[in-house]
């Protein structure tokens, strides 16, 4: 559940994401992404709003020289996207000023995705990247010993320019993506349970299908009706040896 992330990191400062902690989804929900210009891997230019218009957009942040989570994250996203239904675009934005369109093409080829599958790789100007970072909680820091950027893995689900869902971490579960895409199509959960061990939930929200599934609590809800019917049947079966009672009409009629 989306709030697991929140509760697992209880006690951390809530205001701004400190380096070394991933951003918390609940803090950035419904934030509007700035409409920044992007340079795409094929050398063309596009604005972010063009990519997010008409279809949901999945956004993630990478740099091509990453020896850490960038490639595994992209592969995980690719796997989840292959299982998900419906039209959407994917945008991987590089935050490394050294990256060129050619670097990005190489990364796309390395991961095995192409633009016609809805994948876009792009470079944002450093100032624009800062504006994006501000509304998403994404951060990156140059670590001179490892000669790598330190950064969290992050996937945003953007609908009509606003952050609908967000997931931090090195992998993207297919269930998360499915649930988020269902939400963009209007299958919105009106409510969601908080994590915690609770006995007999009535309706368990199933993120894999986006549906509420029956749980043992629902069985308990059907029990009273069932017991009443069974008791009635038992009582009436016992009464089979019926005693004829003579009517006492004179008793009631005034």
């Amino acid at each position: 559940m989306r709030t697991c992330v929140v509760l697992l990191i209880l006690g951390l400062p809530m205001a701004l994401p400190a380096p070394d902690s991933p951003p918390i989804e609940d803090q950035y929900l419904y934030q509007a992404l700035p409409d920044v210009p992007l340079k795409l891997s094929d050398g063309s230019e596009a604005r972010l709003s063009q990519l997010s218009s008409g279809k949901p957009l999945l956004v993630t942040f990478v740099f091509t020289r990453c020896a850490g989570i960038c490639s595994p994250l992209l592969r995980s996203l690719k796997g989840a996207a292959a299982k998900a239904e419906g039209g959407f675009r994917i945008l991987a934005i590089s935050f490394d000023p050294r990256d060129t369109p050619a670097d990005l093409s190489a990364l796309a080829a390395h991961v095995g995705v192409a633009q016609k599958q809805g994948w876009n790789f792009a470079i944002a100007a450093p100032a624009d990247m800062q504006r994006i970072a501000k509304v998403t909680g994404f951060w990156f820091q140059w670590d001179s010993t490892s000669r790598q950027y330190d950064h969290p893995g992050l996937v945003l689900v953007v609908d009509r320019g606003r952050i609908l869902r967000m997931r931090a971490g090195g992998t993207v579960p297919a269930a998360f993506l499915q649930e988020a895409l269902e939400e963009t199509r209007g299958k919105l959960a009106k409510s969601y349970p908080l994590p915690g061990k609770v006995a007999f939930r009535c309706f368990q929200y199933d993120p894999a299908t986006g549906e509420l599934a029956f749980d043992w609590g629902a069985v308990l809800m059907l029990l009273p009706g069932g017991v009443a019917i069974v008791l009635a049947v038992v009582v009436f079966r016992r009464g089979r040896t019926r005693v004829r009672i003579s009517m006492k009409n004179s008793l009631m009629w005034p």
Binding site: D26, L29, Y30, A32, D159, R160, G161, R162, L164, E183, T184, R185, G186, K187, L188, K190
Partner: peptide, 11 residues
Amino acid sequence: YPRQADVPEKV
């Protein structure tokens, strides 16, 4: 109940 007609601007 909430529907996906609009994306909220604030939570």
